[in-house]
Nucleic acid binder design. Structure first.
Length: 259
DNA sequence: ATGGCGATATACTATCGA
């Protein structure tokens, strides 16, 4: 079962790239973030034509998440824990692969949180607390679970080309990283870290200041696996070449293979 | 020390992102 997470930075701007990527990679499940459109504006027909079921949780202008699946999916929208939260940042689905193996998959767009010390950072930390509570509930099911998405968290200094640039940033502050560790320490496995302890593996390069050309990247897109999912892990990789395409997203797809 | 880039909205500028 091939599962991908990708912050596309507007699905309408990136439709050609998404179609090209789906054709070349043929994933079973794709978690998208920052679709930046309402549900009605999602290019559904183009994706369905490639054999995918499409479930979206969009909003106007900002944010928005979606899950594409070759097989039908049971879907829930929104992260529990705050009925007043109007931002579309979480969608969760149960699906299968062609062999009928089941997985629960979430597409998460965790808040950026900058600048630190503002209500934006408080919202990020509260969202992470809600995610920890929800993950604890889901882990109790003892099933194949993949929490995938743009976490906007640089877990360690190994995950940035220039960690010194990020010391005061909401993506790297101690409180942010503490909560990420608290989440992982519930019993989740960081899929990329399960296959390599090396630094220099990035998933985001800023559009500005030649970050891509200098490989000045950070690793902020993650797939966290329940023990049952980790037991099935056979591959985890970053599809870095996509960043070199014409007019790319600033994030690239991250992909895992579960047996 | 600063800006640099890109997307969206009602848009010749502001906001957001990371």
């Amino acid at each position: 079962m091939r599962i991908v997470t990708w912050n596309v930075n507007s699905v309408r701007q990136r439709l050609e790239h998404l179609v090209r990527y789906l054709r070349e990679t043929e994933p079973d499940v794709v978690c998208l973030q920052e679709i930046k459109c309402v549900d009605e504006a999602f290019p559904r027909l183009e994706i369905e034509a490639l054999g995918y079921n499409v479930e979206t949780h969009g909003q106007k202008t900002f944010n928005g998440v979606a899950i594409l699946s070759k097989r039908p999916i049971e879907t829930q929208r929104g992260l529990p824990g705050d009925e007043a939260d109007a931002q579309a940042r979480y969608i969760e689905a149960v699906t299968t692969d062609a062999q009928g193996r089941v997985a629960r998959v979430a597409s998460i767009y965790l808040p950026n949180g900058n600048p630190a010390g503002t209500e934006k950072y408080a919202y990020k930390l509260a969202f992470m607390d809600r995610l920890i509570r929800h993950a604890r509930d889901l882990l109790a099911h003892e099933e194949t679970l993949v929490l995938a998405g743009d976490y906007n968290v640089i877990p360690t200094a190994l995950d940035a080309k220039r960690p010194e640039d990020w010391l005061g940033d909401a993506l790297f502050l101690p409180q942010t990283r503490e909560r990420f560790r608290e989440l992982v320490n519930l019993g989740l496995t960081d899929a990329l870290r399960a296959v390599s302890n090396e630094g220099g593996v990035y998933t985001f390069w800023d559009y500005q200041a030649g970050a891509w050309q200098k490989n000045n990247g950070i690793r902020i897109d993650h797939l966290l696996l329940s023990p049952e999912a980790a037991d099935r892990l056979v591959e985890a990789t970053v599809d870095k070449h996509v960043r070199g395409w014409d007019k790319p997203s600033d994030h690239v797809p991250v992909r895992i293979e579960l047996k």
